[in-house]
C-alpha cells in the first residue's frame, strides 16, 4: 500500500461501531463533562467574588455613614477623612464588579449547565448504554451540545458589548404609560385600542375618530409583516402623528404620547445628519405651518426628527 492510498482509504471509511462507542465516550467525558466542570468551577468562583465585593462594599458604605455621623458630633478630623475615603473604596469594588461582570457570567454559565444537563438526557443511562444503538444518538448529542456551546460563547461575547444593554435601556419609552403598555406584551390591536382611549382623554371625539381611521389607512398602506412584534406599535405612533397633522393649524399640535412613536427605519437619516431633538410637546417648526395632511411617507419623515439618540443612527 502506498503512502497516497492510505489516507484516501481512511477518508472514505466510515466509523465502525467500535469507533462510535469510543467517540461517544470521548465526547461525553472530554467535551460534555469537561465543559460542565469548567462551568461549575467558574460559577463558584464568580459567585464568591460577587458575594465578596457586594458584602465588603455594603460594609464599607455602612461604616462610612457611621463614621460620618460620629465625626459630625465629635469634630474629629480623622474620622471625616476616613468617611470621605471609604466611599471611594466602595466605588473601587463596584468598578471591579462592573468590569468582571460576575453575576452576568454566572447566569450565562448556569444556562449552559442546564442546557447540557438536558442534552445528557439524550444519552442512554450508563447501565443501558452497552445495549443501546448509539449510531443515531451520537450525532444528535454532538450537534445539540455544540449548539449550547455556541449560544454560550455568543452570550459571553455580548458581555463586552455593553452597548446592547445600554441601547435596551435607551429604547425604553420615557412615558410611564408607554412603558406599561410595552411591558404588558399586549397585541397590536390591544395596544392601539389603549392608545385610542388615552388619546380620547386628551382630544375631542373627532380627533379620536380621525386617529382610528388613519390607523386603518396606514396599516393598509404599510402592510407590516404579521410576525413583526413592534409593527403595531409603530403604526399606532404613525397614526397619532397623522392625527396631529389633522388638527387645526392654529392650535399647537399635541406631542406623541409614546417615545416609540419616533422609532424610525435606521436608514432614514444619513450619518451625522441627525437633527436636534425637539422639546417634548413642541411642534416641529415646518409642521406647524403645514395645512394639509401629507402622505404617510412624509408623516414618517417628519416624525423622524424626534429620533432617540440610541443606536438607531450611526
Amino acid at each position: 500500500m502506498s503512502a497516497n492510498q492510505l489516507p484516501n482509504h481512511l477518508d472514505s471509511q466510515p466509523h465502525s461501531p467500535e469507533d462510535l462507542a469510543l467517540l461517544f465516550n470521548i465526547y461525553l467525558e472530554k467535551r460534555l463533562q469537561g465543559q460542565l466542570t469548567f462551568y461549575e468551577s467558574r460559577i463558584r468562583e464568580n459567585d464568591l467574588n460577587s458575594d465578596f465585593t457586594f458584602t465588603l462594599g455594603t460594609f464599607i458604605m455602612t461604616l462610612s455613614s457611621l463614621l460620618a455621623t460620629i465625626s459630625a458630633s465629635t469634630a474629629i478630623p480623622l474620622l471625616a477623612l476616613i468617611s470621605a475615603v471609604l466611599p471611594a473604596l466602595s466605588a473601587l469594588l463596584a468598578a471591579f464588579r462592573q468590569i468582571y461582570g460576575w453575576d452576568r457570567q454566572s447566569a450565562i454559565y448556569r444556562d449552559a449547565v442546564l442546557g447540557l444537563e438536558k442534552i445528557r438526557l439524550l444519552a442512554p443511562d450508563d447501565d443501558r448504554l452497552p445495549f443501546s444503538d448509539i449510531t443515531p444518538i451520537f450525532p444528535r448529542v454532538v450537534m445539540t451540545s455544540e449548539a449550547v456551546f455556541t449560544a454560550e460563547v455568543n452570550q459571553w461575547g455580548q458581555i463586552f458589548t455593553a452597548s446592547a444593554e445600554q441601547e435596551e435601556a435607551q429604547n425604553v419609552p420615557r412615558d410611564p404609560l408607554a412603558r406599561m403598555i410595552a411591558a404588558a406584551n399586549l397585541s397590536d390591536d390591544q395596544a392601539a385600542a389603549i392608545q385610542s382611549i388615552v388619546t380620547a382623554g386628551k382630544k375631542s371625539g373627532m380627533d379620536v375618530q380621525t386617529t382610528v381611521n388613519t390607523y386603518s389607512e396606514v396599516s393598509v398602506e404599510m402592510q407590516p409583516p404579521a410576525d413583526a412584534p413592534a409593527a403595531g406599535i409603530e403604526l399606532t405612533a404613525a397614526a397619532e402623528t397623522t392625527t396631529i397633522l389633522n388638527s387645526p393649524t392654529d392650535a399647537p399640535p399635541a406631542a406623541p404620547d409614546t417615545d416609540y412613536a419616533v422609532v424610525p427605519p435606521q436608514e432614514s437619516l444619513p450619518d451625522g445628519d441627525m437633527p436636534a431633538p425637539l422639546e417634548y410637546g413642541a411642534p416641529p417648526a415646518d409642521l406647524a405651518a403645514m395645512p394639509d395632511t401629507p402622505p404617510a411617507e412624509e408623516t414618517e419623515t417628519e416624525t423622524d426628527q424626534e429620533l432617540p439618540q440610541s443606536g438607531a443612527v450611526g
Binding site: P14, Y27, R31, P139, V142, E146, F149, T150, V153
Partner: peptide, 13 residues
C-alpha cells in the same frame, strides 16, 4: 469555534 470544529471533525459531522 475551533474547539467545536475539532469535535465535529472527529464525529464526521
Amino acid at each position: 469555534e475551533l474547539r467545536m470544529q475539532y469535535f465535529k471533525y472527529l464525529a464526521h459531522l
